[in-house]
Amino acid sequence: MVDQNLSVPKYWRKIPQYYRLTAVKCRKCGRVYFPPRAACECGSREFDEYELPRRGKLIEYTVLRSVTSDFEKQRPLAFGIADLGGVRVFGQLVDCPNPDKLSEGAEVEVVFRRVKEDSDYGIIYYGFKLRPVKGCW
């Protein structure tokens, strides 16, 4: 069989987070965590699932030119930190060749995209990315 370089289970169990930004909300104090975690800072270990909103504001960004072997053909990669309903999330910025044209606090929406694939025969990883609603051109 072809050598599988990307783990399937490691991706599959994160599908709720990668596809739907499923965070956890502490039942006791209401604090929301993304990425999810096992225990709240208030001490409680009981959480409810909570999908982050798919619109937010861009806090900061950068464009990475020195990428890793997995992303060689996708360079450069733009990354941003977005505030989605009060929760800060890190992700790739897409559909934005000129991010320097963005104003601070620019509106972004969450989109569903391919992240990478394991050559021509292995699995395709999908996940969320951040797309500035306008202003990148």
Binding site: S66, V67, Q74, L77, F79, Y125
Partner: peptide
């Protein structure tokens, strides 16, 4: 899972 997965490196 949440940073390197998307291609981030420390310099970013």
């Amino acid at each position: 899972d949440y940073e390197a997965y998307f291609g981030a490196t420390p310099v970013a």
